[in-house]
């Protein structure tokens, strides 16, 4: 398609538009980084300085020493990794089940998965609080793990369903002939083939969990269980807003996302192609 007459011009046009988009994407990130390295007076200079007058690591130091961000990170990592594993686990079984079997209520179940996306989650806060309360889980990491896995399972199931649909049934049958049971076939043959889909689903679940704010705010009450998102929100102080600390913490909070994304991004597009997009 690029061999058309206008191909070269079109290519330049593409670069121009993409570069413009890149500027819009990266400028806020630059401002975030620049702010994170500013000291307290530079922060409020008018007109604002685009780059720090003087690079300082004060804010980065402060988030570890004055605020318990180490603890927040530890909490977030435990919560989000567990929730991701649980969600992807349940979702792959359920997705495989829907893709391979017909059973009464299958259509209703699929519809239910979609419906879960329709209800304003704000109102689930209260019932969640009382469930966690009766379980004695308020202010525990487990409460967040349970909540985040629940919230991501529906769409993860939907994604995995789409993905397993794309794997030929003949493979299951071949595996059965080889003497592997249903479960064996699933674990040994189908799941490995589904890895890109799993990766995409896992990225989705991870991002959702890492970014969640409102439920974490309500379900946690002390610093030893608060996740990073709530920690960042709490930097909007009562007496002032610590913009440089806030941006430093945000920057550090991005790192795990970048790592996960960096490792799995190759699978992301492949996974999404096979997954949710084949409605």
């Amino acid at each position: 398609m690029a061999s058309n007459v206008g191909g070269v011009a079109f290519r330049y046009f593409s670069y121009a538009v993409l570069s413009a988009a890149l500027v819009v994407v990266l400028l806020p990130l630059m401002w975030l980084i620049s702010t994170a390295f500013k000291d307290d007076t530079d922060l409020f200079s008018t007109p604002p300085s685009v780059f720090p007058e003087q690079f300082t690591f004060e804010s980065f130091l402060r988030i570890w020493t004055e605020y318990p961000f180490l603890q927040y990170f530890q909490n977030s990592i435990i919560v989000v990794l567990s929730a991701t594993i649980i969600a992807v686990g349940f979702a792959s079984f359920a997705g495989y089940g829907i893709a391979r079997f017909t059973f009464p209520g299958r259509g209703a179940f699929l519809l239910f998965l979609l419906m879960t996306q329709m209800f304003p989650s704000i109102l689930l806060l209260i019932p969640y609080y009382s469930i966690m309360q009766s379980l004695g889980l308020i202010n525990t990491l487990l409460a967040l793990i349970v909540t985040y896995s629940t919230f991501t399972i529906p769409l993860c199931t939907w994604m995995m369903w789409g993905f397993f649909k794309g794997i030929p049934v003949e493979l299951d049958e071949a595996a059965s002939i080889d003497g592997l049971g249903r479960l064996g076939a699933f674990v040994r043959i189908i799941l490995p083939l589904g890895l890109p889909g799993l990766a995409a689903t896992a990225i989705y679940a991870f991002i959702q969990g890492w970014n969640e704010y409102v439920f974490a705010l309500v379900l946690t009450q002390t610093d030893d269980v608060r996740p990073v998102s709530v920690g960042i929100g709490n930097l909007v102080g009562e007496d002032r807003i610590f913009w440089n600390d806030l941006m430093a913490a945000s920057l550090v909070a991005l790192i795990p996302m970048l790592l996960i994304f960096g490792f799995l991004q190759r699978h992301l597009i492949a996974g999404l192609t096979g997954g949710s997009v084949k409605g």
């Binding site: 806060l125 209260i126 609080y129 009382s130 966690m132 309360q133 202010n139 009450q221 002390t222 709490n234």
Partner: peptide, 23 residues
Amino acid sequence: IEFLGTPMNELYSELTTMATGGN
């Protein structure tokens, strides 16, 4: 003493949520 810290602007809604949970 176990402190449950909450910003002033969240205080009333957090207390209410806790009250609904009997906690």
